[in-house]
Write a protein that binds this DNA or RNA. Structure first.
Length: 550
RNA sequence: GCGCCUGUAGCUCAGUUGGAUAGAGCAACUGCCUUCUAAGCAGUGGGUCAGGGGUUCGAAUCCCUUCAGGCGUGCCA
């Protein structure tokens, strides 16, 4: 409905010789003013050098003439706002279109098939997922669903950092723990900066490690002799755990990319050679440097150290080059906010490889601070003191956890008081939304039991004021979807759904849907069906379950 | 020192990308279950949008500045 209006406004502006980008519609704060409004005439006043009210008058005449019954009225208010009010006939016609097209009604093709890759979570397989990863998982999944819904070709990827010193430390930690537990060496030295969480013991106790230990005589080995297998086993066991957590959280990936695989297949070497051939890598002070300063970074960055070892940056170069080689036109990475300093150099790489700077988008997932008794808890994987995603899911459920993360902008720091989250979980906003859906379903069940088909309303009469408000909100849902997609902010959908439920519940309480009046019943069922479609669509995008009853 | 993020009701957060009189949830208080689900509804109270200046028809939103918190600033990953 907003799209039809926007197209109309755009045409009107083009006829006046004005660029289409001025065609912006918004929902007035005060609904008495109208259904949609545009401040366009005030913006044009400066450009056209005419008073805003004069311009507004011209736009009004043109839109009324073109609109053909779409509007009940178009008013000019204040300093030049144009307020549009839809006619009842137009709302009903639009409702019928929604019911006919179902979820397709919600989708506007914004992506036009553009291939975009979203990489998220990508936690090192050196420990369980914590709350920050959970936030990234919820946001990344919702964003992927959202973009897919508006016409992008989306791939969801998890990058596995299974090479380098962190994995080395993981292996050492597991090795040391095994010796302490099973080799009668309780004093066996634990690595200084090893991982100390309980999960290390669990790894050491796992059948896989114990089986290998039995075969290799681990109690009599040096770490370096068994390092490769210990590391690989620990890593894959940890990854299995992570995958299980994600699955239980309802988050899935299309692709898992291993860092080690980049080295094995020679992609790191060839990527650097490629950059060198383009003159973007040079030698200095015995190291090899990438010219990132040429693309906006503060300084050039080392990719191969003096000792001939690759830096972490080297594999990231290969990784991001490979993303381009796989044909993605837009690359979205979700990173923890503590990596923000890393953005310019990766952006530099992609620009050096020919990707326009707007093709690379990093969503910084701000820190999740955990509070206990109102005081922040230091979360450190190495100290082993942190609250896992698993723990929170088990306590309050995946839907509540997701909604907790999705009712915030991703780039604002978030405090979670676990005790409060547990206490409030039964009053969580997610239930408010799900409950609305379940109630509609319940009405439909009742209708069916009475021999009425709620999905096939054959006639729709007029609507009262409450119904009009509800209907209008549902019909304008695509507007939220569009802005959420364009701004890459899935949380807007969560808030929309909560607002829609906030209209539905009072309506439900005030009016009966199924009454003696057959025509009225048909109309109200049609309205409920529209709500059902929108709630279902929104919840599906957020990755939240859609309960038929509660 | 420099860079990025943040500061909105007692708490946790939105605020349509510069629009009209700043909004929700939780917490507190008062009512409402014989009806299609009370995980609900109706109502009450709660604000110097961190402070100051600027830009313009119009600022919580943009610019400058001060204050406060977080993060970053490796030939670590």
């Amino acid at each position: 409905m907003e799209k039809v209006t926007r197209d109309l406004l755009t045409q009107t502006l083009l006829d006046m010789g004005v660029s289409a980008e001025f065609a912006e519609l918004e929902i007035p704060r005060d609904e008495a003013l109208g259904d949609l409004s545009t401040p366009v005439s005030m913006r044009l006043a400066r450009v056209l050098k005419r008073p805003p009210t004069t311009i507004a008058g011209q736009i009004r005449e043109s839109m009324l003439a073109r609109g053909a019954g779409l509007f009940k009225s178009i008013d000019i208010a204040g300093q030049g706002f144009i307020n549009l009010t839809f006619s009842d006939d137009a709302l009903i016609a639009e409702l019928k279109r929604l019911l006919q097209q179902q979820e397709a009604y919600c989708r506007e093709d914004i992506g036009r098939g553009k291939r975009v890759q979203i990489e998220f979570v990508s936690a090192n397989p050196t420990g369980p997922l914590h709350l920050g990863h959970g936030r990234g998982a919820a946001v990344g999944m919702a964003l992927a669903n959202l973009l897919q819904e508006v016409g992008f070709g989306v791939q969801r990827e998890y990058y596995i950092n299974d090479a380098g010193v962190q994995i080395e430390k993981l292996g050492q930690s597991v090795f040391a723990r095994y010796r302490q537990l099973f080799c009668d060496e309780p004093e066996y030295p634990f690595p200084e900066d090893g991982y100390r969480g309980d999960y290390i013991s669990e790894l050491a106790e796992s059948p896989e490690i114990r089986d290998f230990a039995g075969r290799s005589g681990l109690c009599y080995s040096e770490f370096k002799d068994v390092a490769d297998t210990i590391k690989e086993l620990s890593c894959s066991l940890m990854l299995r755990e992570i995958k299980r957590d994600l699955t239980d959280f309802g988050v899935t990936f299309d692709s898992w990319q291993s860092e080690r695989e980049l080295y094995r297949s020679g992609l790191v070497q060839s990527a650097i050679a490629f950059l060198r051939s383009k003159g973007l890598i040079y030698d200095s002070e015995g190291a090899q440097w990438f010219k990132s300063a040429a693309f906006g970074d503060d300084k050039d960055r080392v990719v191969v150290k003096q000792d001939n070892q690759y830096t972490y940056f080297a594999s990231d170069i290969a990784y991001h080059k490979q993303k381009l080689d796989r044909g993605f036109q837009e690359i979205i990475d979700l990173w923890g906010a503590d990596h923000h300093g890393y953005i310019p150099r990766v952006s530099a790489v992609l620009q050096g490889l020919g990707l326009p700077s707007e093709g690379f988008n990093v969503l910084l997932i701000q820190m999740v601070t955990l509070l206990r008794d109102g005081r922040p808890v230091q979360m450190s994987k190495r100290a082993g003191d942190f609250v896992t995603l698993r723990e929170l899911i088990d306590e309050i459920g995946p839907d509540t956890t997701k909604f907790l993360f999705l009712t915030r902008r991703h780039d604002t720091p978030l405090d979670i008081d676990v005790e409060k989250a547990k206490a409030q979980s039964s009053e969580n906003p997610v239930y408010y939304v799900q409950y609305a859906y379940a109630r509609i379903n319940s009405i439909f069940q009742k209708a069916i039991s009475m021999g009425i088909d709620p999905y096939e309303p054959n006639s729709i009469s007029g609507f009262n004021e409450d119904e009009r408000r509800l209907l209008k909100k549902a019909l304008l849902y695509p507007m939220t979807l569009r802005s959420a997609a364009l701004s890459r902010e899935p949380h807007r959908i969560a808030f929309f759904l909560h607002e829609l439920a906030g209209l539905f519940h009072p309506y439900y309480h005030k009016h009966r849907v199924i009454t003696e009046d057959a025509l009225l019943t048909q109309s109200r069922l049609a309205l409920c069906n529209a709500m059902r479609i929108v709630f279902g669509h929104g919840l599906r995008i957020l990755g939240v379950s859609i309960p038929q009853k509660m």
